[in-house]
Simulated scan of single mutants.
Amino acid sequence: MYDRILVAVDGSEPANAALDHALDVASDCDAEVRALYVADTNRDSVTTVGTDVRDALEQEGEDVIEGARERAAARDVPFTGEVVQGEPGDAILEAADERAADLVAIGTSGKGAIRRFLLGSVAEHVIRRADVPVLSVRADEDVRVEYPYDSILVPTDGSEHASRAMERAVELARRHDATLHVLSVVDVMAVGVDSRADLMIDQLEERAREAVEDAGAEAGEAGVDVVTDTIVGSIHREIRSYAEENDVDLLTMGTHGRRGVDRFLLGSVTERVLRTAPAPVLTVRGEDEED
């Protein structure tokens, strides 16, 4: 499934959680892991020690890479690592492209570049533009990080982008003999309150049911154990609650390409899902669009 996995590292607990999970995946897939430490050029890190001029971030990066190398060696996973200078988002994308990575893994909080990735423009930058799936891992006591996966959740709205995520989720479910949960959430707050609200909600619920039924039928034809559900409520809250109640090991979600805003992943819902998801999140981008 994967041959080359790129992991953004910074030595923090969240980055290490992403690294460890990526190593689990790599060991299962006989894949190589490449660790990337980005010395952010937006920060002044050059210091002088005696007559030597040193870049503190680059030195820190070498130490972080060595630690990652030891973790990979303990699992007998092929490993390479590098320290690069640049803007974090672009550096991650460039490395993924140049090294022909087929998966990018990253922690959802941490220091330096990783923190900016999750909470700022770098997150959208990488998710929108990465040509390969992005695996986000949040390090917290309430996060379930298990491998292999026994339970996979795919939120869907019937869009092409959700279908791309569905394809990957079916592939993963077949590999792990996992139960696939297909969920559609009807956001009644987006409808408003007027004389047509009830009719609109009925229409949205019918579309949601059709979306999960179609996706469930597709997965069933692939020989996957499927559970489908349609829920009315706040999208990100219902996704989280469902994942918690069903002990989900992985959430797989689709994103738009380079243009447009996906209601799941490029607005407030995305940040909330990534910040609060009780398990790793795999985002899969839809068809390319022009910038």
Score class of each variant (00 low, 15 high):
M1N: 09
M1H: 08
L6Q: 06
V9Y: 03
D10W: 01
N16R: 12
L19G: 06
D20Y: 00
S27R: 14
S27Y: 00
C29K: 11
A31F: 05
A35N: 04
Y37E: 06
Y37H: 12
T41H: 02
T41A: 04
R43L: 10
S45C: 07
V46N: 02
V53T: 13
D55I: 05
D55P: 07
A56S: 12
E62W: 00
V64T: 05
E66S: 12
G67W: 02
R69H: 05
V77E: 05
F79N: 09
T80G: 08
G81D: 05
D90W: 00
D90E: 09
I92S: 03
E98A: 13
E98H: 04
T108Q: 05
S109R: 12
G110F: 00
G110K: 06
G110P: 09
K111H: 03
A113T: 05
R115F: 00
R116F: 00
F117M: 09
F117Q: 08
L119G: 04
G120K: 07
V122Y: 02
H125F: 10
V126T: 03
R128I: 03
R129I: 01
S136I: 11
V143T: 15
R144M: 07
Y147D: 12
Y147L: 13
L153G: 06
L153M: 11
L153W: 04
T156L: 11
T156V: 15
D157H: 01
G158I: 01
S159Y: 03
H161R: 12
A162M: 11
V170N: 02
A173G: 08
R174N: 13
H176P: 07
S184L: 06
A190Y: 00
V191T: 04
S195L: 08
R196E: 12
A197P: 05
L199R: 13
M200H: 03
Q203A: 15
R209Y: 01
E210P: 01
E213L: 07
E218T: 11
E218Q: 13
A222H: 13
V224H: 07
D225P: 10
T228W: 05
T228E: 14
I231Q: 15
I231S: 03
H236S: 15
I239P: 07
I239Q: 09
N246Q: 15
N246Y: 11
D249L: 13
L251K: 04
M253A: 15
G267W: 12
G267N: 14
V269E: 15
T270R: 14
L274I: 15
P278L: 08
V281D: 06
T283F: 03
V284G: 11
R285E: 09
R285N: 09
G286Y: 01
